[in-house]
Amino acid sequence: MTKPAAISIKGLSKSFGATRVLEDINLDIAEGERVVVIGPSGTGKSTLLRCLNYLDHPDSGTIRIGDLSVDADKASRADILALRRKTSFVFQNYALFANKTARENITQALITVKGQPKADAIARADATLRETGLADKADAYPAALSGGQQQRVGIGRAMALDADLMLFDEPTSALDPEWVGEVLDLMRQVAEKRQTMLIVTHEIQFAREIADRIIFMDGGKIVEQGPPKQLLEAPQDPRTKAFLRRVS
């Protein structure tokens, strides 16, 4: 008997005004699977992630994570909050609170999203900062951190939530080149724990290393998907072939 997918997305669509950004996305993700999404800019990759925790409200479709199913046509505020508790999000621009320390940026999420007591949240934040190599930066504010350190705090915040699904929206795109490696190394550490991950990235070599499956999107649709070796070395669709020629 086939094990049901940990995450199941059915018929997900989204428009901004007259522009259709996502068109009938259907995707299943297994528990512990690392799925990487690649494709041209402006093709709906980030919107897909944002719809999965209702930062953007999808026009139609259902999202199931574990035993929770949310239908866009009748999603209540309680449904959306429950869905957000099952996901954690790593933003391309870090999205840290400028007036909070590294420790406080992590504890804030644990208190507001998970409802943890402050003392427990602080203990978890400190453990996460040690894990991300930032124990000595616990009391530092974002302005005193490099871009790579800020993004590691952002990833640490997502890690601390122990979510069913971690969403990474181009986590290295805002970084100077010298900071990219440290962020990718931390993501590899997360991946080694078999954390379920959906990652949008332009880092093709990283995708080859970390992904169990790569999805190529174009025009708001999933065009092609498969194991890294198959998709990157023997793509079937002309659009995938053209994209990979441009980025290789």
Rank of each mutant, 00 (worst) to 15 (best):
M1H: 03
T2L: 03
L12R: 07
G17D: 08
T19H: 03
L22M: 03
L22P: 04
D28T: 06
D28N: 14
I29A: 14
R34W: 07
V35M: 12
G39A: 06
C51I: 04
D56Q: 15
D67L: 01
L68Y: 06
V70K: 11
V70R: 12
D73T: 09
A75N: 04
S76E: 05
L81Y: 06
A98D: 15
K100F: 13
T107M: 01
T112Q: 14
Q116M: 15
R124C: 01
D126R: 15
A140W: 01
A143F: 06
Q149H: 10
Q151E: 05
G156R: 05
M159L: 14
L167V: 01
A174C: 00
A174S: 13
L175S: 09
D176V: 05
D176Y: 06
G181Y: 02
M187F: 11
R188E: 11
Q189L: 11
V190I: 15
K193A: 14
M197E: 04
I199F: 00
E209S: 11
R213N: 09
D218L: 10
G219T: 10
G220F: 11
I222F: 08
P227Q: 07
D237F: 06
D237P: 07
P238S: 05
P238H: 01
L244F: 02
R245Q: 15
R246F: 01
V247W: 03
V247L: 04
